[in-house]
């Protein structure tokens, strides 16, 4: 489990609580400390959710901005990291809904393309990771989110559940289904 997830499971850090209080009162330096603390963790989630570094950066920026604007309404019901990750996931959902569907290939070209990438290409380690990225993006977003949080970002199932507004057991079920779907996609591409 990552350091981030370990810290997410601890009770609220008093230094972080102080930063949140100061930021809520409008202290930009305190908010900058929170951004510094969580930017890597959130970017890691965003890049796996969106599959694109620029989209990930934009989404993380928007999440922090939204958090800053809504801090007066945040009274520590959850950890700051839980709250901001929830904002980020919601933004990923919204971006996903707003994105245009990929233009289909012309039929003549599509007919000549293999339905899955060639096995020999994916045999190269770097390409195998690309295959995982693509397989991840092919998952429905309600499966991708628990998998990204638990497998790729080190959150526990309990923390993932708090972020997604699900019970721990429901989170486990979704993560399990997502894992199975990912494994199926990877198996088809080998």
């Amino acid at each position: 489990m990552s350091q981030a997830a370990v810290s997410a499971d601890r009770s609220a850090d008093p230094v972080e609580t102080r930063w949140v209080d100061l930021a809520r009162a409008g202290d930009e330096n305190a908010f900058a400390a929170l951004v510094r603390q969580y930017q890597d963790q959130l970017y890691r989630v965003a890049v796996r959710m969106t599959g694109d570094p620029q989209d990930a950066q934009d989404t993380v920026q928007e999440a922090f901005l939204q958090a800053w604007q809504h801090l007066p309404g945040f009274h520590g019901e959850a950890r700051f990291s839980t709250w901001i990750t929830r904002i980020l996931i919601n933004r990923c959902h919204n971006a996903h809904r707003a994105s245009r569907p990929t233009d289909p290939l012309p039929e003549a070209e599509a007919a000549g393309m293999p339905s899955t990438p060639a096995a020999e290409t994916l045999a190269v380690a770097a390409h195998r990771r690309d295959a995982v990225r693509q397989a991840l993006l092919s998952l429905p977003i309600d499966q991708r989110a628990p998998l990204v949080l638990s497998t790729f970002s080190g959150y526990t199932h309990a923390e993932t559940g708090r972020i997604l507004g699900l019970s721990e057991s429901a989170t486990k079920v979704r993560a399990h289904r997502a894992r199975r779907a990912l494994a199926t996609a990877l198996q088809e591409w080998r």
Partner: peptide, 30 residues
Amino acid sequence: LWAPVRELAAEDVRAPAGLLQAVMAQIRDL
């Protein structure tokens, strides 16, 4: 099958260098 998933999960992913500055510039503007 799962090895590349582990490799991807273990990648050292960090926020771009200018992200903090970009966020704070937007916040100062706000």
